[in-house]
């Protein structure tokens, strides 16, 4: 099946990225420390970005890194500032909820295999055709005939509403606490960092 150097390299890269993605996914599942799980999540995201790049979708690949790396950064910060490592060491790896979690990937896997078997031709890629590059994405999103740009703008407004809502909720809590009102927001953030426990030394803080 492998005819040229390109194909051989593509196969090597694909299997490298794919196995890295799966290994990191298992790391998320079985890692007990939430921070390790978060870093494994980044590993999965980066491997997926590599696979997107192999699928001739550079824009998608870069967005995968840009967006998800930032998002997982937030997760890491939550882990550092909110979660308590000492307690998580005691928690069991699996509970009853895990069963639902296990059923979902099986379902998706079955669907994926069924799709591949059903319509094999649609999945063959050509090396020259760029799928999710800058141009195709831009035309798909912003072509006046398709009208997706309206949806795009609506999603933007939705996100703005979410941000305003979050600020409102946070501000109400800040106002309720007399200690933080006369300080700049930055100082409040600093103070909460100082109290964030890590490595179980501040197990009694209770967040």
């Amino acid at each position: 099946m492998l005819h040229s150097l390109d194909q051989i390299l593509t196969a090597i890269y694909f299997w490298g990225f794919a196995s890295a993605a799966v290994l990191c996914a298992f790391g998320i599942l079985f890692g007990r420390h939430p921070l390790n799980a978060a870093i494994c999540l980044i590993g999965t995201m980066l491997s997926l970005a590599g696979i997107y790049a192999l699928l001739a979708s550079p824009f998608l690949a870069v967005l995968q890194v840009l967006v998800y790396a930032g998002a997982v950064m937030m997760l890491v910060l939550f882990v550092i500032m909110v979660l308590n490592q000492a307690r998580d060491h005691v928690l069991p790896r699996f509970d009853k909820l895990s069963l639902i979690g296990a059923a979902l990937p099986v379902l998706i896997g079955v669907l994926a295999v069924a799709t591949v078997r059903h319509d094999h031709a649609a999945l063959t890629s050509s090396a020259t055709a760029v799928r999710a590059g800058v141009e195709p994405v831009a035309t798909a999103l912003f072509a006046p005939t398709k009208g997706y740009y309206l949806l795009f703008e609506l999603v933007g407004v939705l996100l703005l509403v979410a941000v305003v809502g979050a600020v409102l909720l946070a501000k109400r809590r800040l106002d309720a606490d007399p200690g933080t009102t006369d300080h700049p927001a930055g100082d409040a953030a600093n103070g909460s960092v100082a109290q964030a426990g890590q490595n179980g030394k501040d197990a009694h803080h209770g967040h």
Partner: peptide, 25 residues
């Protein structure tokens, strides 16, 4: 030389925060 050159640089630069945050933690 990808067509997304600058975005790739930004993506890399967004990853560099991890070194500082992980090291500090």
């Amino acid at each position: 030389a990808p067509e997304v050159g600058l975005l790739l640089l930004f993506a890399l630069s967004s990853l560099s925060v991890y070194g500082i945050v992980l090291g500090s933690w």
